[in-house]
């Protein structure tokens, strides 16, 4: 089940990444619509983070290429915002919340241009949108996991991009923060932004995403959620992972998706 779209936001063609002779991504080929919230799902080690990195040219490609809004990455870099997995950063860093959010302005400022009033205003607004205004001067080591995630989101907002790539933004975040972040993502979607989210929780996937990409080293499915979120495709994706498989069954029953027992 691989559905392609006209005039895609993001397209990947034959993306292959091999680490130490082990294919981590194999011949991934898809195109994603504009202005949707898109989920990328797959088991641990499926290559989800690597896929995002390959698109951003942060992982070494063995073959293939990707395009963003029909252009090469270098042409549209400023319009793309990347939120790495929160755990990849040392939060014990001497920086304040607004220092980090200001980083979102650097792509348009470059390395040397001075920070202007309008940059500060953009940062202030971004913090307001994620409800972190009162924490602007807080040192980042004093933030909770959910607050750290919101800081990252604010940094992405400050970048004023058109395509957002979020790697597991809901890990270690409580339910109310997750709902608030989701609300914000929907607002962004309504403003025409495209949001790609690496996600783990099958229970919320159908509710969150309009479009779903399933991978497990190779592409299993890409298409509208109602077509892709099926027992069979999820089983293919999470093959062999028993606990996940029973979870899939639960989710199917909960949400009244047709479950076909074999």
């Amino acid at each position: 089940m691989i559905i392609n779209v006209q005039d895609p936001s993001l397209e990947a063609h034959n993306l292959t990444v091999i680490y130490h002779r082990k294919p981590v991504l194999w011949n991934i080929d898809f195109s994603l619509p504009k202005g949707e919230i898109i989920g990328i799902m797959g088991p641990n080690g499926a290559g989800k983070s690597t896929l995002i990195k390959a698109i951003l040219e942060l992982a070494p490609l063995n073959s293939g290429y990707s395009k963003i809004f029909g252009k090469s990455l270098n042409e549209v870099r400023k319009k793309v915002s990347y939120i790495p997995q929160r755990q990849t950063i040392d939060w014990d860093f001497p920086a304040s919340v607004s220092d980090v959010v200001m980083m979102g302005r650097y792509p348009s400022l470059g390395l040397f241009k001075r920070i202007t009033k309008s940059d500060r205003e953009i940062v202030r607004l971004a913090l307001e949108q994620v409800n972190m205004t009162e924490y602007a001067n807080r040192q980042i080591s004093q933030l909770s996991g959910g607050q750290q995630q919101r800081v990252f989101l604010a940094r992405a907002l400050a970048q004023q991009a058109d395509l957002y790539l979020l790697d597991e933004p809901f890990v270690g975040v409580d339910a109310s923060t997750e709902a608030a972040i989701m609300q914000l993502l929907r607002t962004m979607k309504n403003e025409g932004k495209t949001i790609v989210v690496v996600h783990h929780d099958l229970h919320t996937a159908a509710e969150y995403f309009n479009w779903l990409v399933l991978i497990n080293a190779s592409l299993i499915a890409s298409g509208p959620t109602e077509k892709v979120f099926t027992d069979e495709l999820l089983r293919n994706t999470y093959s062999g992972k028993l606990t996940v498989l029973s979870q899939v069954g639960d989710v199917m029953r909960e949400q009244n998706f047709p479950v076909r027992e074999k």
């Binding site: 870099r77 990347y82 790495p84 950063i89 940094r155």
Partner: peptide, 22 residues
């Protein structure tokens, strides 16, 4: 002073830095 921004962004968040073209 000249390299401050590059040094700090690539120290704090190398993936983000690289993604933005640093």
């Amino acid at each position: 002073l000249v390299g401050y921004r590059g040094l700090w962004v690539s120290t704090f968040d190398p993936s983000f830095a690289a993604a933005t073209g640093i």
